Simulated assay, not measured.
Amino acid sequence: MEAAQFFSLDMRVGQIVRVEDFPEARRPAWKLFVEFGDGIGLLPTSAQVTNYSAEELQGRLVVAAINLGTKQVGNFLSQCLVLGAITDDGSVALLEVPKTARPGDPIA
Rank of each mutant, 00 (worst) to 15 (best):
residue 2 E to K: 12
residue 2 E to L: 14
residue 4 A to K: 15
residue 9 L to C: 12
residue 9 L to T: 12
residue 10 D to N: 07
residue 11 M to P: 00
residue 11 M to H: 07
residue 14 G to V: 05
residue 16 I to D: 02
residue 21 D to N: 15
residue 22 F to C: 07
residue 22 F to S: 01
residue 23 P to C: 09
residue 25 A to K: 08
residue 27 R to Q: 13
residue 27 R to H: 12
residue 28 P to N: 09
residue 28 P to R: 13
residue 30 W to A: 02
residue 30 W to I: 08
residue 31 K to M: 05
residue 32 L to G: 03
residue 35 E to C: 01
residue 35 E to H: 14
residue 35 E to M: 04
residue 36 F to K: 08
residue 36 F to E: 06
residue 36 F to M: 08
residue 36 F to T: 08
residue 37 G to F: 11
residue 38 D to F: 02
residue 38 D to M: 06
residue 40 I to F: 10
residue 41 G to M: 07
residue 41 G to S: 03
residue 45 T to R: 06
residue 46 S to Q: 11
residue 47 A to L: 11
residue 48 Q to A: 14
residue 49 V to C: 12
residue 50 T to V: 15
residue 51 N to T: 08
residue 54 A to N: 12
residue 55 E to V: 13
residue 55 E to Q: 15
residue 59 G to P: 09
residue 59 G to M: 10
residue 60 R to D: 06
residue 60 R to P: 05
residue 60 R to N: 04
residue 61 L to C: 06
residue 62 V to Q: 08
residue 63 V to N: 05
residue 63 V to W: 05
residue 64 A to D: 04
residue 66 I to D: 03
residue 67 N to E: 09
residue 67 N to P: 08
residue 67 N to W: 10
residue 68 L to M: 15
residue 70 T to W: 01
residue 71 K to H: 02
residue 72 Q to H: 03
residue 72 Q to W: 01
residue 72 Q to C: 00
residue 73 V to D: 01
residue 74 G to A: 10
residue 75 N to E: 11
residue 77 L to C: 06
residue 78 S to A: 09
residue 78 S to M: 12
residue 79 Q to T: 07
residue 79 Q to V: 10
residue 82 V to K: 06
residue 83 L to V: 09
residue 84 G to S: 07
residue 85 A to V: 15
residue 87 T to F: 00
residue 87 T to E: 09
residue 88 D to M: 01
residue 89 D to L: 02
residue 90 G to R: 02
residue 90 G to N: 05
residue 92 V to F: 02
residue 93 A to S: 13
residue 95 L to M: 14
residue 98 P to E: 12
residue 99 K to C: 03
residue 99 K to R: 13
residue 99 K to L: 14
residue 100 T to V: 14
residue 100 T to E: 14
residue 101 A to Q: 09
residue 102 R to A: 09
residue 104 G to A: 03
residue 105 D to M: 10
residue 105 D to N: 13
residue 106 P to R: 15
residue 107 I to N: 03
